[in-house]
Design a protein around this nucleic acid. Sequence first.
DNA 1: TAGAATTGAGCAAACGCTTGCTCGATTGAT
DNA 2: ATCAATCGAGCAAGCGTTTGCTCAATTCTA
Lengths: 347, 347
Amino acid sequence: MQITIKDVAKHANVAPSTVSRVIANSPRISQKTKERVRSSMEELGYHPNIHARSLANRSTQSIGLVMPSAATKTLQNPFFPEVLRGISTKAHQNGYSLYMTTGVTEEEVLSGVIEMVQGRRVDGVIVLYSREDDKVVQYLRQTKFPFVVVGKPFGDASSITYVDTDNYLAGREVTKHLYNLGHRRIAFIGGSDKLAVTQDRRNGYATALMEAGIPVREDYIARAEFMTKGGAKAVRELLHIEEPPTAVVVSDDMMALGVISTLSEMGLKIPEDVAVVSFNNVYIAEHSNPPLTSVEINIFGLGFEATNCLIEQIGDSAPPYGKRVIVPHYLVVRQSCGQKNAGQPAE
Amino acid sequence: MQITIKDVAKHANVAPSTVSRVIANSPRISQKTKERVRSSMEELGYHPNIHARSLANRSTQSIGLVMPSAATKTLQNPFFPEVLRGISTKAHQNGYSLYMTTGVTEEEVLSGVIEMVQGRRVDGVIVLYSREDDKVVQYLRQTKFPFVVVGKPFGDASSITYVDTDNYLAGREVTKHLYNLGHRRIAFIGGSDKLAVTQDRRNGYATALMEAGIPVREDYIARAEFMTKGGAKAVRELLHIEEPPTAVVVSDDMMALGVISTLSEMGLKIPEDVAVVSFNNVYIAEHSNPPLTSVEINIFGLGFEATNCLIEQIGDSAPPYGKRVIVPHYLVVRQSCGQKNAGQPAE
DNA sequence: TAGAATTGAGCAAACGCTTGCTCGATTGAT
DNA sequence: ATCAATCGAGCAAGCGTTTGCTCAATTCTA
């Protein structure tokens, strides 16, 4: 059987409550007693039972992670491991551990979350995506359970704590960069339209075009799955239109990988024939062929900050609801977008 | 406050114990009562408190994950997300959730594990690596706590359940493949020597050479960190020796990425000047430049099977200790190793 | 139709820990 | 030297479930 607080108490010749207070390092216990109890704990190899503790004081020291449905697919995108690193680092620093549920459908994910929350399995939740009409966020919000979103939430964003990249700005900058390189026919390939990240980046793209006096062509905007396959498919379509783009803004590195390998297969040179820029600057962006120009968004930082906010929220009962943290980004220029003047000038 | 079993009991006009038995779907409860209780649960939105349940039950429905120390670094290698996918899939199918601790030093990891185990936070543990003299495995084994190792454990492997690739065989095959391509000066770049995976692959490599009548040269064997940086450094050293190798077996795709980009930087062509093969066939192996020839080891399957074994172990009290599962692998030939006759024939 | 067997549900004692109160012993003030 | 204040530690009541027993009601047997 397990060694319980009673065993320790007996061994140290005190009451269980005293042991408990020693663990909590309560000032009500004398130094002498504390030492005696501590050495008993040591000697017996005592470790508190987490469930008993959580039950008694209604706090687990853990954080729930919500992945997009089909988490299992998602894990293939290096974004998630990286954000996980950030989360895990901060969580660990503060003595929290991580609790993951995965589900393949939206319903499964939601019920997983409900279980975490109602079952008091976690103290707070981090939602690793932001999707329109998302049940999870709705639920979390209405139950007033501590949570933070990675990405910009929909609806009444002002009341939700979130950490995000300024994707709108990033989209604008990237597009402008291509414009400055001489490109005039610039396309956009995004992931699911329901995702905030796609919308923001696309809007930034459109704004940049408008600022440059270039009309936004619907047929230059493609959407696809967030993986290489999606990118491959999308770019194929784009290049079949009459006046094919000379540059393309891709909303995600993995998609961009798909884009560039497809272009190579089609016999097109990057960046000479088509320039490519994308977002996230995941680990492998630098190792693709050619290396990807990509927006470094500090994914680790997103995770880290999100966890930070969550822990704040859990701690203070005074809810600093509606806090928002924007993690800075910057463009990392590599070969895939070409040099100045390398693009085909307009008309 | 939370809705408890008592609330449900009151609402359905039964005793708490009855509610509990309804949840467990005990045959001792009549169909009628079950339905009544169930609809009460539904109506009140009842969800059992996990901690109370675990406390009473002595079972959590969760699995502990042990990452190598510096987990946070490790997460950069796509191996882990992928194995996580496998684990998560199987775990989810069986109603288990995942519990992660991370630590940066070995001691931290160990104490995390002890906490999980002694604190009865998980029902079993999956160790995601295998290292010589590993305290975690020692501990787990001596406490007789259910666990399985991904990778081949050291010491008395026969008493430990594990799932693994036949890395020895894979190492042999890969080396032989290079030999058949005409290479005679074949080097090996491995990760930490303490890791079973490195040792096995290296031994396979050495065996293949010996079988081919080629002496194993110590200066052809390099070790490095398990990431691109490591690969880069190692290959630079290898190419500085007098008779540089014409082919190199790299123990990990990420290292191989480092290798090939370093080679490119040095102005060497792959596979013409140096052929490269590696292991794991992670998602991006196919997207590197040139695409990597790599051994597909079914990482997902490793995770899945490991979870499967663990759940078996948790379930049956009859311990099927010492089970071992070998997940099959196969070589995926891409450009990085070149075609037949492309290598430089010996002498 | 009486008594035995069976069925369905409740009682209450755990599970291991926390925490508001209580209370004796020490210390300090007068 | 007396009484109040202070300090250190223990008592016991939870926290929300599970589960071995008990027991009343029902069904069956003879």
